[in-house]
Design a protein around this nucleic acid. Structure first.
Lengths: 131, 131
DNA sequence: GTAGAACCTAGAGCCAACTCTAGGTCAAAC
DNA sequence: GTTTGACCTAGAGTTGGCTCTAGGTTCTAC
């Protein structure tokens, strides 16, 4: 069932093998990756799932250092739930702020798009305005 | 009414004077900034407004090269509305995609937050689950 | 037995987007 | 008249996050 090569994990996660090794060096893996013959990395489903979490966190702008911190807390085991919550809540705030920012930006862009569509006659009755 | 120093613009936009000069070098300003005594930059309200747009675009992840491209189109004057629309629509798509991604991430984080709150007894009836 | 593919390590390189430094000008305040 | 502060240029340095290279091993297929 388990026992994936780095290439397989790369394929499944969308990360490059380079990035997978890099993430490991950076301490983003919950457990140290096991090694098979010739020192080849052997990943399991848990690793892939954890990488999925890391990818989501990265995609939402969490810096690698924060992901590492969180990973270290998870690795340390029970007893630090308060700190984990702290990290997560902090990021949650950032994500919400970022969503709000994107929303504002979207308004601006949509407004401009409407203007240009109006100018090009693709749309009617748009009152133009600068800039 | 108009006639702002770089320092004043920095204060009003939240960008550093370094960044303002950098953005200018990078061609992000719709018009070349006028110069006053001793070659000092003199900005007007239009410049500040345009910088506001650039800031929004940056905040939503548009790379400087794309902002420059858009700026160049605007600078070139009427006749390229189709291209401007293209740039804007492309970015609009990216922003929407990014919002969707953030949404997914937020779900994940909120789920985890709920789990830890549950473990800490800050919340009831949360069914735990890995990872 | 040899060619090719997939892996390994250590470390260099790259890119975007700033950010800072050195060395200088200029005007106003003391 | 000199000090202070805000500005100037050109160019170097930094940071984060990858991405790639060189040189090597090991397994599989021909």
């Amino acid at each position: 069932m388990s026992g994936l090569s780095i290439g397989q994990v790369a394929e499944r996660t969308g990360l490059s093998v380079h990035t997978l090794r890099f993430y490991e060096r950076e301490g983003l893996l919950a457990q140290p990756v096991r090694r098979g013959t010739a020192g080849h990395r052997v990943y399991n489903e848990g690793d892939v799932a954890w990488l999925g979490v890391c990818i989501r966190l990265r995609a939402s702008g969490m810096p690698l250092t924060d992901i590492r911190r969180y990973t270290e807390l998870v690795r340390a085991g029970q007893g630090n739930e308060v700190q984990r919550l702290e990290v997560l809540r902090e990021h949650q705030e950032r994500v919400l702020a970022q969503m709000h920012e994107l929303d504002e930006c979207l308004k601006l862009i949509s407004h401009k798009v409407a203007i240009y569509e109006g100018r090009l006659g693709l749309r009617d009755n748009v009152t133009d305005c600068a800039p």
